[in-house]
Simulated assay, not measured.
Amino acid sequence: MAKKLPADERRAQLLEAALAIAAEQGVDALTMRPLAAAAGTSLGIVHYHFHDKDTLLTQLAETQILQVNEAMQLAFGHYTDSAGLTGTPALEDLLRAGMRGLWPIIESTPNHQLLTYEITAHALRQRSAGNVSAGAIAERQYRTMDAQAVAFLTLCARRANVNWTTPVDQVARFALTCMNGVVLRWLVDRDSDAALIALDDIVQILTTKAS
């Protein structure tokens, strides 16, 4: 018999088990019955927390994004010295610290990074097949990423005492588009040196969008 846990703890446990299954075996392998077995609980409890697979994938995508953001904020929080820089040079330094601080997390979790793309592709395929609610997974996934990116860019600008001359939501969209490409290319060739150079190039471009 499954141990009775508070609802929030049980939900977190289920998401952790779901992440392990999907990262190792792919989205198709993530169904309710294997999830219940992996979490050591009943199928009824799984359905209580997640009405269907689409609901589960939505929560899983958001959990991944927030975990990555927390790791980047932690790395950024350790950054305290701008070496006397101010203005846009300080912004460039701050952006580089945050983005390079994120890279070790990406390197250590390739299956989780691949899962992010897989969830997006799954949602878009479902939308093309007429499943509008499933397609909303990708939209919500990107809204979450946009919000986290806007918060990070706003913090960097405030610390550097600069203003974004391009609306910050557009800057965030551009930055995420570039980052997605860098990570996907790295998943193909695992060339971390080239990826870090690309990140520095992104930082330089972003800096031109502030004054």
Rank of each mutant, 00 (worst) to 15 (best):
L60V: 03
V188P: 00
I137L: 02
E70H: 11
R11N: 09
D81H: 13
M99S: 06
V188D: 11
T109F: 00
A39I: 07
A198G: 02
R190S: 13
G44R: 05
A38D: 05
R96Q: 13
T177R: 11
K4Q: 14
L91H: 10
A75E: 09
A123D: 04
Q64D: 09
H78P: 00
T208Q: 14
G26Y: 08
I45W: 00
V27D: 09
Q59E: 15
L176S: 12
T55M: 04
R33F: 05
H78Q: 14
V168D: 12
L19R: 15
A23L: 06
R185Y: 01
T31K: 15
A210N: 07
A7D: 14
Q113H: 01
F174H: 12
T116Q: 06
H47N: 10
L56Q: 02
D200R: 03
L43A: 09
V132R: 12
L187P: 05
D146P: 00
R158I: 08
T165H: 09
I119R: 00
L184V: 07
V27F: 06
M32I: 12
L30A: 01
L19N: 13
R173S: 14
R127V: 00
R158S: 15
Q64M: 13
A29K: 11
T109G: 00
L57V: 06
D189P: 04
V188G: 01
K53D: 03
R158T: 15
K53N: 06
M1D: 12
S82E: 11
V182K: 01
A38I: 05
D191E: 01
F152P: 04
S128A: 13
G77S: 09
L19M: 14
M32G: 12
L115F: 01
W164E: 03
V182E: 03
A157C: 13
N111I: 00
D52H: 02
D201A: 10
G40D: 05
H122K: 00
I106W: 01
A97V: 02
L43D: 10
D169E: 15
T31D: 09
T207M: 04
A134T: 03
R158K: 15
T58F: 03
L184A: 15
W186D: 08
